[in-house]
């Protein structure tokens, strides 16, 4: 039997690794959109994070510094977006698309002399006896730290949006920026901070690809992961745990179809390769449809420029 060669524990472990880059990018973008900003530059910030993380890690020999560098690079590129859209009032959609193109080009330039090099290995997190539990240990407790950091960020974002005052202000700014301004909140400042958080998360996600998942630098290696992250935010109805579920679903199908390819299933490779995108979107469409739930959760001021008026 073909499927006999696939081990569930290995599959789950691989799934978590495959899902982490998208999860990081999506949770960052979720916060940005909750603040009412649509940043289509996720792909660009991811790939810049990928190359920046790779360069720093290779130069210093320290993958941790690499990840920090990636987050900073993503944040700086996002700051450019914040400057364009919040200060210069440029159109968010156009600026985001430009950011993606710019990130792709800049990363190709920066990474020219790093093609074909192996980055320093990122160690697995030592969880002691947990990792030795049969099945569970192999599936859930033998990963690098970033997998858990990503989950921690999701929980943190959930707590922040739901229970903290700053999170309430952020949601208020995204829901109705005129009212938030009228109450004396700094719409642009809140949005700029959210945009930078989104950039840092996207950068981390990109570096996870180039330092752990692949691990290598190749031009255009994000291959649309940023776009999937964007779609994930919408179909997850701007809810952190749904974004987590969506990312793991996507990761799971990526890994499964790779295994199926390896096992020689008689389905053309093209269909298998497109299946993760297709299935993730179909499932999320079904989850978010019904009772106009998704649209209720959408930030009211999303993608509307804010002009402070006297």
């Amino acid at each position: 039997m073909i499927l006999g060669s696939i081990q569930p524990a290995v599959l789950i472990a691989a799934l978590m690794v495959a899902a982490t880059p998208i999860l990081l990018a999506a949770i960052g973008e979720l916060v940005v959109e909750k603040a009412g900003v649509l940043n289509l530059g996720v792909e660009g910030m991811m790939i810049l994070g990928a190359v920046a993380g790779f360069i720093v890690a290779v130069q210093t020999g320290n993958p941790t510094l690499g990840f920090i560098g990636a987050a900073v690079a993503g944040g700086v590129l996002a700051l450019l977006f914040a400057l364009l859209t919040q200060v210069l009032m440029a159109n968010q959609v156009a600026s985001g698309l430009a950011l993606t193109l710019f990130g792709l080009g800049l990363s190709a330039l920066l990474g020219q002399s790093y093609v074909g090099i192996s980055p320093p290995r990122t160690p697995k997190l030592d969880l002691g006896p947990l990792s030795d539990i049969p099945f569970l240990g192999r599936a859930f407790f033998s990963h690098d730290a970033l997998v858990y950091v990503a989950i921690a960020i999701v929980i943190g974002v959930l707590w922040f949006l739901k229970y903290s005052r700053a999170g309430l202000i952020l949601r208020a700014v995204g829901e109705n920026h005129d009212a938030a301004h009228g109450l004396g909140y700094h719409v642009k400042r809140v949005r700029a901070l959210a945009i930078m958080f989104g950039g840092a998360c996207a950068g981390l996600g990109g570096a996870y690809l180039s330092l752990i998942r692949v691990p290598q630098w190749t031009e255009g290696m994000t291959a649309g992961a940023g776009w999937i992250a964007l779609a994930l935010v919408v179909f997850a109805s701007w809810r952190p745990f749904r974004a987590l579920a969506g990312a793991y679903l996507f990761g799971g199908i990526v890994v499964l179809q790779l295994n199926l390819q390896a096992a020689g299933v008689k389905i053309p490779v093209e269909y298998l390769s497109m299946s993760p995108y297709l299935i993730t979107i179909i499932v999320l469409v079904f989850i978010s449809s019904g009772k106009a739930r998704g649209s209720l959760n959408a930030p009211g001021s999303l993608n509307r420029p804010f002009h402070a008026s006297g």
Binding site: R171, A172, E175, A179, A180, P299, G300
Partner: peptide, 11 residues
Amino acid sequence: VFQHFSLFDAL
């Protein structure tokens, strides 16, 4: 109390 209410529908 504002003329056009300064309220947030989704909250």
